[in-house]
Simulated assay, not measured.
Amino acid sequence: MGEYVSVGSLTAYLATGRSNGPGMLLLPMITGIGEQVRDGADELAGRGVTALTWDAFHGRSTDNSTVDELSELLAKLDDDAALAEQTQLLDHLLGDLGCSKAGVMGWCMGGRFALLLGARDHRLAGVTAFHPTVPSQLRPNQTHDAIADAAGIAAPVLVSYPSADHMVTAADFEALQTALHSRPSGATFSLFHPGADHGFTNRDRHDKPANAAAFQLAWPQALTFIDTTTASATG
């Protein structure tokens, strides 16, 4: 089981894998460091991967806040401030925690930030983005275009897109794929899930069969992707 730790002025959830082994920076969806994110970090640690989770809302999550309250915080989130916090956590994974390599995995808003961070920090061994919230129209609090910036990612990328995504149109996802395919290095693996919704990985949405089926296919693919990019000796 993991624990909450301090990294400088930040709080994060840490689940420790094997000593000097691989690491993963986890960037959650709007739920913050909720139960499912903690469970995912613990699962990775059980596979030997040290998982460190970004606390996007500084102590607020679905454990103690409503989704509406978290949505208000999300609308105030500053791109550059968030990226600075994520970089600090990545420094901690590769520095104090002694991880040999590190990747990043994000969901929804965290999937967007995984792409943005991957474009800026080429220490990352892999980028995994589940249903990233990357509409072509930026919100007022957003300063970076994740679709355009994705062309700057050097590492391999695994991205999952649900066909019933109400946040990101099929055209926007195709634009993201075009940007990723334009890269001179770094393989792109795209998963397309017919009938699944935005946020299909959230187990609260698994009463819809298409969402449950999408998760059952996508999560093992992500674990394999981590094994071959971050956990392997040569990936």
Rank of each mutant, 00 (worst) to 15 (best):
A82T: 15
G95I: 05
A41C: 12
L223F: 07
H181N: 15
T229E: 01
D197W: 10
L115P: 03
M109H: 04
F173S: 03
K76T: 14
H206A: 03
G48T: 03
G23C: 10
L77C: 14
G235C: 00
T224Y: 11
A114P: 02
G98W: 01
S9N: 13
P22D: 10
A56N: 04
V49E: 07
A84R: 13
P156L: 04
Q86D: 05
A212T: 06
G152F: 01
Q137C: 04
Y4K: 09
V67N: 06
Y13D: 00
Q221F: 12
L10E: 15
S61G: 07
R183I: 09
D227E: 15
A125H: 08
W54A: 15
V7E: 14
M109S: 08
M29K: 06
R203F: 05
G199S: 15
Q216L: 15
G40H: 09
D165G: 07
G23A: 06
A82C: 15
L138E: 06
V5P: 11
V159G: 01
V67E: 12
C108Y: 07
K76L: 14
L94V: 03
F173A: 00
P220A: 01
L74K: 11
N202F: 14
C99V: 07
R123E: 11
F192M: 11
V67A: 13
A129D: 04
L116I: 04
L25G: 00
P140Y: 06
T50Y: 00
S232L: 01
S232P: 12
P156V: 10
D227W: 01
D79G: 09
A231V: 09
V49S: 05
F215K: 05
T234H: 12
E35G: 12
A154P: 02
W219E: 10
T229W: 00
T143K: 13
G186S: 06
L44K: 02
L90R: 03
R123F: 00
E35C: 05
S19R: 12
H122R: 09
G199Q: 09
A15R: 08
H92K: 08
A12F: 05
G21S: 10
P156C: 00
Q142L: 14
L115C: 07
F192Y: 14
F225L: 05
S100D: 10
I147V: 02
A51Y: 02
N202E: 13
A210E: 15
L180P: 01
N64I: 07
E35L: 11
F189E: 11
A125V: 02
A218I: 09
A51K: 02
P156G: 09
R139H: 13
A82W: 05
T16N: 03
K101T: 11
S182N: 08
C108T: 08
N64Q: 10
R112W: 10
D121I: 04
I226Y: 03
L77N: 15
D39Q: 12
S6H: 14
I226M: 02
I33Q: 04
D96S: 10
G48V: 00
V127F: 08
H92A: 06
P135Q: 08
D68E: 15
A125S: 15
V5Q: 03
M24R: 01
V127Q: 07
F130M: 08
A146K: 02
A151F: 00
A114D: 11
N211K: 11
H206V: 03
W219T: 11
N141G: 10
L93A: 00
A196L: 01
T228Y: 13
T66I: 07
A179L: 01
D39N: 11
N202V: 03
V159A: 01
K76I: 12
L115A: 10
T50W: 04
F192C: 06
S61I: 02
D172H: 01
